[in-house]
Amino acid sequence: MPGYAIVLASGELEKLQAVANIASVAAASEIPIKVFATMDGLEAFDKDTVESKSFTGGPVAQAMLESEDIQVPLFTESFGRAKELGDFEVYACELSMDLLGKSLDDYVDLFDDVLGVSGFLTMAEDKQVIFV
């Protein structure tokens, strides 16, 4: 199975969680996954944002953050687990970082590298692309 290339462009928590859940199960099931975090989707991985859990999102996102009965791991945890269990690579968009004057050190430690658009397209050549 060639796997999926996921463009993660949204910083809304419910979308980040959905990507993390689907992609982590896929990676753990021998389906290769490449995630390209760009625009606000990359900013959600900012260390301070993750630390303070200051995400945007709708009612489900809110319920996830407040839920006591059902434990839902944050997308960053699911990403970490996916990397342990399978072929799961995460790349940060160079343009988004340049616009904000940031480096990989500003984000949680999940990224394999920084990538531009042509680099991503090359990586996605044999994969089905999912845009979120």
Partner: peptide, 17 residues
Amino acid sequence: RGAGCPGPLMDLIGKIK
């Protein structure tokens, strides 16, 4: 118990591997 989807499945996959 207590974990939401896909937590239990991920727990199983992690252990079974």
